[in-house]
């Protein structure tokens, strides 16, 4: 396969950045998207040019490190699939592919397609946990949790923190990510004592990090590689509302 790639290049966070055109002719349909970029980078390095920086690690769709907006869609055209699991058979010979970083004020570009998503970590530090120290936990079966609720918690906990929701949202809002964090623990008895605090603190940190506001476009849901439903956003809104009314305790 032959492809024309338009790739965002930006040397440093303060650089303006621009799209750069590359032609790639030795693409196999069995390659993953990142393997295709590997091939490009091999060519670039042999030519003595700076390879394209992009984040990736597990390449199994679970670590959440890979990103990229491909032809306007976060993680590319295949539903419920991270970029690393997207294969080139989703493209046709002769296609032009535009590759951009996840764009948001809260995700500043580090270099080329690499962005800084530490804002997600800071949101989690504000309360995305159960305050329990190691040791002294009761027997795991002492607290029965019905399968339906446990499954619901798992649906939310499946979030890999990739940030595609932010990238896809026309407002760069992080609501799906935050609601998945809140939803995971809100559906478990272990999460109840801190439920109200958690909702308030995560939301206020989310605001402070400079994400946009949710306008219920539901673009986040469409690109989420783990198919986390927007119902969790409604749940978070409910949790937050009742936390405020309870005075935030």
């Amino acid at each position: 396969m032959k492809l024309t790639l338009n790739i965002w290049r930006q040397k440093t966070p303060s650089d303006a950045g621009h799209m750069e055109r590359h032609e790639l002719s030795d693409v196999s349909p069995d390659m993953s998207f990142l393997e295709m970029l590997d091939v490009l980078n091999e060519h670039l390095q042999v030519e003595g040019k700076d390879p394209v920086a992009f984040d990736h690690d597990c390449r199994e769709g679970i670590c959440g490190m890979c990103s990229l907006v491909i032809n306007g869609t976060a993680h590319g055209p295949m539903k419920a699939t991270t970029t690393c699991q997207l294969h080139m058979r989703s493209f046709k010979d002769g296609d032009t592919v535009d590759i951009e970083p996840f764009r948001a004020k809260a995700f500043p570009v580090v270099k080329d397609l690499t962005v800084d998503r530490s804002s997600f970590d800071r949101i989690n530090e504000a309360g995305g946990f159960v305050s329990v120290n190691t040791g002294g936990a009761p027997d795991a079966n002492a607290l029965p949790i019905g399968k339906v609720e446990a499954d619901k918690a798992m649906d939310a906990a499946a979030c890999i923190g990739c940030g595609a929701c932010v990238a896809a949202c026309p407002n760069a809002s992080a609501m799906l990510f935050v609601s998945a964090k809140i939803g995971h623990l809100a559906h478990l008895p272990q999460g109840q004592p801190e439920r109200a605090r958690r909702a308030l603190n995560l939301v206020s940190t989310m605001d402070a990090e400079g994400f946009g506001n949710c306008r219920n476009y539901y673009e986040c849901e469409a690109v989420c590689p783990k198919e986390i439903p927007i119902d969790f956003i409604a749940e978070m809104n409910r949790d937050w509302r009742s936390s405020v009314l309870k005075g935030g305790s």
């Binding site: 032809n71 306007g72 809260a106 673009e219 690109v223």
Partner: peptide
């Protein structure tokens, strides 16, 4: 206004999925 500020650099290739 905040929403606009939350994405200072627009996408070159825009588009929506289900909005």
């Amino acid at each position: 206004r905040e929403n606009r500020a939350a994405r200072p650099t627009r996408y070159v290739h825009g588009g929506v999925q289900q909005a």
